[in-house]
């Protein structure tokens, strides 16, 4: 049964996957509750442009994806705050704009040697040992940042105006949150791929929310759903010879559907 562990790429996939599974919901809960889920999708498309830049310049695509998405996250937040464009349209501009950049770069180089399909849908085969280290370091950084600002993040998510009155630095924390989302999205690319990252950030949280628990418990439940989906997803994708990203997302979706049906029996 566990013959899959003799493959080092599977081990690397598990290592990177579990780190991503741990940080995705912890960022996701704040995005979902602030009605900002679409930002994850936007940042993932921005990351694809970053990947394309990396492949074109023969740099590590993961590194260029991280730089591009974090820089764009700051720009998105500033554009949103400036109120010169509507919040949602700022996201749409970045989403389609970066996709256009990615496609142009890919066609300029007459297609890359590396299969772009792996970056779109995720393939643990693309995870190198150096990537695992990078994902681990950034994962710990995201986790530490959220833990140290946890109570303030909960406060601004629940009631931003009162938090501001209490002296909580809301602007700085909003910027931090979106930058952390950008980091999370980029490090998740090798596991679930650009097109499915948003699902991993959003679905475990929405599934956990069905159970109507406290904030803390909702995070813990979302973490369990996320880690379970990643582990089972990687194992299943190995035996079924399917895309790891797609399989992981389908499993979390299944958990969501079960919880949703259980909690809303009459629909």
């Amino acid at each position: 049964m566990f013959d899959l562990f003799q493959y080092s790429f599977i081990i690397r996939g598990f290592e990177a996957g579990i780190i991503v599974a741990l940080i995705a919901p912890i960022i996701g809960i704040f995005l979902v509750l602030r009605r900002y889920s679409l930002i994850a999708d936007t940042l993932s498309h921005v990351s694809l442009a970053g990947v394309a830049i990396g492949l074109l310049l023969r740099l590590n695509p993961l590194v260029t994806a991280i730089i591009t998405s974090v820089a764009s996250s700051v720009a998105i937040e500033r554009l949103r705050l400036s109120k010169k464009v509507y919040g949602e349209s700022a996201l749409a501009i970045f989403l389609s704009g970066s996709l256009a950049v990615a496609i142009v770069l890919i066609s300029l180089s007459h297609g890359f040697n590396v299969d772009i399909f792996n970056y779109l849908f995720g393939s643990i085969l693309t995870v190198k040992q150096s990537d695992v280290w990078l994902i681990a370091v950034l994962g710990v950084a995201v986790l530490l940042a959220v833990v140290s600002c946890y109570k303030e993040l909960v406060y601004i998510t629940f009631d931003e105006e009162s938090a501001q009155v209490s002296g909580v630095p809301t602007k700085a924390l909003n910027l931090l949150l979106i930058a952390l989302a950008a980091l999370t999205v980029s490090v998740a690319i090798p596991i679930v791929g650009v097109l499915l990252i948003a699902a991993l950030i959003v679905i475990p949280v929405v599934a956990a929310l069905q159970l109507k628990q406290s904030f803390r418990r909702t995070i813990i439940i979302a973490e369990c759903i996320s880690v379970f989906s990643v582990i089972v997803g990687i194992i299943a994708s190995f035996y079924l010879n399917t895309s790891s990203g797609g399989t992981i997302v389908l499993i979390s979706l299944l958990i969501f559907l079960v919880l949703f049906a259980f909690k809303n029996p009459r629909g």
Partner: peptide, 12 residues
Amino acid sequence: NFPVTVEEVVSM
């Protein structure tokens, strides 16, 4: 539907 208890709100 915000998942937060009375105790968590007052802690803020």
